Amino acid sequence: MPSQRGFSRADRVVEQIRRELADLIRLELKDPRVSLVTLTDVEITPDYAHAKVFYTTLAGPDQRAEIDRGLKRSAGFLRRELGRRVRIHHTPELHFVYDNSVERGTQLSQLIDAAVESDKPQ
């Protein structure tokens, strides 16, 4: 049942997980491969067993593979620390997924700009 503010408990848990993971990655994670990472969304299963953590980065495609490996290698540490910070019955397994929506948005914007420029009278 939605609360008075319109957010379900799951929505609040997802937002807290995203916030805590962002802090952990920024302040606690020592893996040099994981840098310039922004968490864009978290999706959690109804039983809280698994969480998809969507991220984006300003690093190039060559560094993205390293960042992905670093995040996957750090998932156990991040899950343990998350369990200490977030009070839920079961701390979810973390699955990191690259979010290409920012990249795709930039490409679409460039295509629109090029189309507008080509439509201008010469």
Rank of each mutant, 00 (worst) to 15 (best):
L58D: 13
F54D: 02
Q63F: 06
K120I: 11
P2G: 05
R104H: 10
P2A: 14
I44E: 03
A22C: 08
R79W: 06
S101M: 08
P121L: 15
S74A: 15
N100K: 06
V34A: 04
E93A: 09
D119S: 13
E15I: 06
A22P: 05
K52F: 01
P2L: 14
N100P: 02
L58G: 15
G105H: 12
R9V: 11
T38C: 04
R85P: 10
P46T: 07
A65Q: 08
S118Y: 04
G70F: 12
T91N: 10
Q63I: 14
P46R: 12
D47P: 05
L27I: 06
V14L: 01
T56W: 00
F77T: 05
Y48W: 12
V14T: 09
D31G: 08
R84Q: 15
D31T: 11
G83Q: 10
V37N: 07
D119F: 06
L29Q: 04
P2D: 10
F96H: 06
I17G: 01
S118T: 12
S74C: 08
R26V: 05
R64V: 01
D68H: 13
G60A: 12
T106V: 14
L36M: 14
H95T: 07
A65V: 07
I25A: 02
K30Y: 11
T38D: 13
Q4D: 14
R87M: 10
Y48V: 10
I25W: 07
E15F: 08
H89F: 09
P61S: 14
I67A: 03
A49E: 10
V37M: 11
G76C: 00
V34M: 06
P46D: 10
E117R: 05
S8G: 12
Q122V: 11
L82H: 14
Y98N: 00
Q63K: 13
Q63W: 03
E103D: 11
L24P: 01
R64W: 00
D68R: 07
R9G: 03
G6K: 14
F77Y: 15
R104Y: 05
L82G: 15
A59K: 09
L82R: 13
Y55V: 04
F96E: 09
Q63L: 15
F77G: 02
I17Q: 01
F77P: 00
L39K: 03
L58H: 12
G60K: 04
V97K: 05
E20L: 13
G60W: 00
L36V: 12
L29T: 04
L108W: 09
S74W: 08
H90S: 09
N100C: 01
T38P: 04
Q122L: 13
R73I: 02
L21T: 05
E117H: 02
E66I: 03
I112M: 15
V37L: 09
D99P: 00
A115I: 04
F77E: 12
R19E: 05
V53P: 00
L82F: 12
V13G: 01
T91C: 07
Q107N: 07
N100Q: 08
A49S: 11
L82M: 11
I44T: 01
G105D: 10
K72N: 12
E28V: 05
A65S: 07
